[in-house]
Design a protein around this nucleic acid. Structure first.
Lengths: 123, 123
DNA sequence: CTTGATACCTAGAGTGTCGATATATCGATT
DNA sequence: AATCGATATATCGACACTCTAGGTATCAAG
């Protein structure tokens, strides 16, 4: 049943909304960790509000796999910030996530629609 | 920062896409477990494809909390099927999930958009 | 009679996120 | 001068959702 050379993209994607969001933000400009946290919270008006315990390990993972790269801010003050920038590999991953998100979004919208359409009619 | 009397709705939601989908399907009509599984897979064209190990415990949980109710199919054959129907409480939960999904969807779309808009401009 | 689809189920592993905690800088208020 | 909240980084254990892997049984088709 169902042609579906389909991978388990949806579940993998589902668990990585933070990864997707972070890559999306860093695709605009370089940011440091805490800034990412606050930007997500304010721009989503609180709908997304990841915790430090989520973000920092995630940033380290993304850095480790080469999706982003980091450097300590060069400054005179004692305040240290670690800035992150997206890499070419990261942009590629972001594009994948975007198309997965579009698929996920469309499929979920379809499934929770009261009016049931046949799967055949969708082709 | 951010007014945000916001609950942790998004993360709770994120982890319960299966719950949302199942409630959405049962809001249309009664179905049995295996049927739900196949319906999700075919209607989403494979984007969603939960496993038995996900669905059956979920159905039991939803039944336990009163969101759905179940009965064994009355039939002459030895083949047994357990049918599920959504309750009034279940429909209420579904409505909550729907508005959470709309918020989640809008927020995520905003965050991964290249063109950054200020949070203020969104009000 | 064997195989695959149907149909139910559970136990354990994996993993993303949170809660709690720790350290330290900095500006503002007392 | 001291305190407090926001800024800024980080780690660890707990929790919850999903998957993997296994089990049992009916039924139609080859």
């Amino acid at each position: 049943m169902v042609s579906s050379i389909m991978k388990k993209a949806q579940s993998e994607f589902l668990k990585s909304s933070a990864e997707f969001v972070v890559l999306g933000l860093l695709a605009r400009r370089e940011m440091h960790g805490y800034e990412i946290l606050k930007q997500i919270e304010s721009e989503s008006r609180g709908v997304f509000a990841y915790k430090e315990g989520t973000l920092y390990p995630l940033l380290h993972r993304l850095e480790g796999q080469g999706s982003i790269e980091a450097y300590w801010e060069a400054t005179e003050s004692a305040r240290k910030r670690r800035y992150y920038r997206i890499t070419r590999a990261g942009r590629k991953l972001l594009q994948e996530r975007k198309s997965q998100w579009a698929e996920f979004r469309a499929a979920l919208d379809q499934l929770v629609t009261e009016r049931a359409w046949s799967a055949e009619a969708l082709s």
